[in-house]
Design a protein around this nucleic acid. Sequence first.
DNA 1: GCGTAATCGAGACGGTACGTCTCGTCTTTCA
DNA 2: TGAAAGACGAGACGTACCGTCTCGATTACGC
Lengths: 233, 233, 233, 233
Amino acid sequence: MQSSTPVPRAAGRPRSATADTAILAATREALVELGWSKLTLGDVATRAGVAKTTLYRRWAGKNELVVDAVAELFDELHLPDRGTLAADIEGVVLQFATILARPEAKSGLMAVVAESIRDDALRDRIRESIVDRQKCLVVEGRARAQARGELPPETDPEEAARTADLIFDVVAGAVVHRTLVSAEPADEEWVHSFTQVLLLGLTSLSTAQAPPLQAVSAKSRPPLGARHAPPLP
Amino acid sequence: MQSSTPVPRAAGRPRSATADTAILAATREALVELGWSKLTLGDVATRAGVAKTTLYRRWAGKNELVVDAVAELFDELHLPDRGTLAADIEGVVLQFATILARPEAKSGLMAVVAESIRDDALRDRIRESIVDRQKCLVVEGRARAQARGELPPETDPEEAARTADLIFDVVAGAVVHRTLVSAEPADEEWVHSFTQVLLLGLTSLSTAQAPPLQAVSAKSRPPLGARHAPPLP
Amino acid sequence: MQSSTPVPRAAGRPRSATADTAILAATREALVELGWSKLTLGDVATRAGVAKTTLYRRWAGKNELVVDAVAELFDELHLPDRGTLAADIEGVVLQFATILARPEAKSGLMAVVAESIRDDALRDRIRESIVDRQKCLVVEGRARAQARGELPPETDPEEAARTADLIFDVVAGAVVHRTLVSAEPADEEWVHSFTQVLLLGLTSLSTAQAPPLQAVSAKSRPPLGARHAPPLP
Amino acid sequence: MQSSTPVPRAAGRPRSATADTAILAATREALVELGWSKLTLGDVATRAGVAKTTLYRRWAGKNELVVDAVAELFDELHLPDRGTLAADIEGVVLQFATILARPEAKSGLMAVVAESIRDDALRDRIRESIVDRQKCLVVEGRARAQARGELPPETDPEEAARTADLIFDVVAGAVVHRTLVSAEPADEEWVHSFTQVLLLGLTSLSTAQAPPLQAVSAKSRPPLGARHAPPLP
DNA sequence: GCGTAATCGAGACGGTACGTCTCGTCTTTCA
DNA sequence: TGAAAGACGAGACGTACCGTCTCGATTACGC
């Protein structure tokens, strides 16, 4: 057997295979060191030991590259099975908070979201590779709770989708705001308080409304403004 | 005879008062047309009919300028008095959502928040001119509800602050996420559903905890993970 | 008859006399430290402890200011009386070389001459305040030599003017070139060699041409190209 | 088989050969139209149809660029062979004067010389690409005259160098001063007069000194100041 | 003495050019 | 043929001076 040289070609074509990995890793590294606005594609190429051309051949621009680099961080996001819905939620929220605490996520995510406001293709890319994967967990968690018997099967699919969206916006939004705007750690204590409020709110809502277990619905909402004001701590 | 004026009027030509107004307006205009990343200080200066130097004399850079330009949008945010706490909350959340629906707010706000991750001074500026003003409304709303008798006076000020922070992160985060990430309108219907969940969650939390009306507290929290799982719609 | 003052003393506060002095001194100081191209009027004003406005009230621009500042250096240029024409020339050339050796003269003079190429008013100002004062010395030196009997009185005034111009260009040009381009010191030894060549050249020319003592004239010049070539050392 | 190429051809896209030509031509054009002080590198780049970066990649700044642009003008300076030393000198001085009469030379040359006072690297560049090329002609002319038998071979090489320097300073300085400071044309008539003085001066000097053909030397100079004063026209 | 008028300092103003940086594209040469 | 290296046209960056302007505060003179 001919022993292949350990580093057969210092420069040349065989880098093509590993290039993507190197580039994405270099992108995250640059995000940590420089942040999104100071990150340049030339610098990423240099860090990855790759020509700028190679980079432009694979990504349309900085935004797309960063989305892919950040998306990889969310691969480790999984729905735990802790036995109860409440525990499951706390677990996944905590996971999400942990990822968001990493500087490359902080730096990159908000920036590309900001960019996506004026770039529909970018928004789709973000949704596809980051957001939908998270929203999936909400749906999956609900299904698991239903399997456990914690939740009744849903009646109106449209209503269910709307509720999932609301939950997702509340969860993701609260964690992001806590982490990035308030710049306070979304630690276990905070996650616990937050989960409690969320879960109780959803429960009270469904029980407060006859018939039982009905989802939050603006169509059939009671005259809230007229109801007595519940105490706020 | 009264002595010299306490602020003896700085020497030299005073700064043009109209320039500030024109620059901030031009910044918002450019944000709408170009978005944050394509916005250029040179372009803003041109739109405002002002020299680039004038702009740099007053703001350290693009981020600071955009913060101030966006902050002015939040001047119109006031706490309405609709008679009940629920209605007040709905009103103010809707106001916040309306402001966030404006393209200049969408384009600018997330971008500067993203930038603020690596720039503490910028974060402080954002907090001071945007965030704290909103958080104030939470506190003020609670005070008003207490005056109305809807809420009991708070017992632990630290606890009260923590709860206010949580409420604020949930409210602001959910609206922002709905508007910018999910890219769905935070309309009256959505705001109503959201407010209901939030308010019921807070209410249930305080009543679930013995003695009555106690605030969410991590110190004295019950073993939630072990409690029964409430139904999720 | 008592004439009213011809310049009836303009109303208002008179210009500070010390400012001019300070400004010109500051200009020379800045020339030494920074050179012409890095010299800025704002810096000069600061050095002189004067407002920029004061400076612009008195000089049209950088060029005019530098001309005046440099011109003062040439005030110390006087025709010595060493007894013979040769010694007088050597003396004055050496004086000129000494002034040119000063950095403020080096930096400033050539630059304003370069500027004067495209600015007739500036050229006139230079001629008036610097060049003509030097050219004067040539004429004065000749007159003194004639008084001494070293030189015959001139016959053709036009011819005399032309010769004076030639001498002046040769003297000033050679010293300047030696100092600024060759960047070698125009010291006593060099000045002596130069003077010798110049004086002998002029002498030989006039004696070589019949009738005696006639000036260099292109009108009556002998067919030089056809003459035998004299040895060059 | 011969080994690797001595200059292994740098990797990457090579610099455009036509760009240099276009840039230098554009520089001269801008010198004529605007003069040195109003000449802008951005403007030159535009005229040359080239990006500013391209320009800065090749030249360190305005000074270096102008030196190169002006140096090309002196490429046409050659030593004519008119048969006699006197005629040769007149020819080359006239060539020099003709070049200096061009506005791009006038505008550029003095300015960079002025700049070179505070910039040794610039002075070297000027010397290398402009001055030495001219000085060469002096040496070459002397060699040719020696070959013709008009001049004896030089004895002391150091002395010869010193004399060449003196001649060069006188010639170049006089022409430059005539052209730029006096702002009079260095036409045939003037050049003839000047050449005559120079040549006679050098001749007389060498013959006046025993033994014959000795160069101007400060070491063995006669007491000039005490000698009789020759008539000055 | 008191107003009038031009000065003074300070510094902001609209501009222009600077020299650097990054962009995304395009030639080259090498393996 | 594809990847490295790197030059290219384009254009924004933030800075430095430009020469002008607006200020309030000083002088001096003439009434």
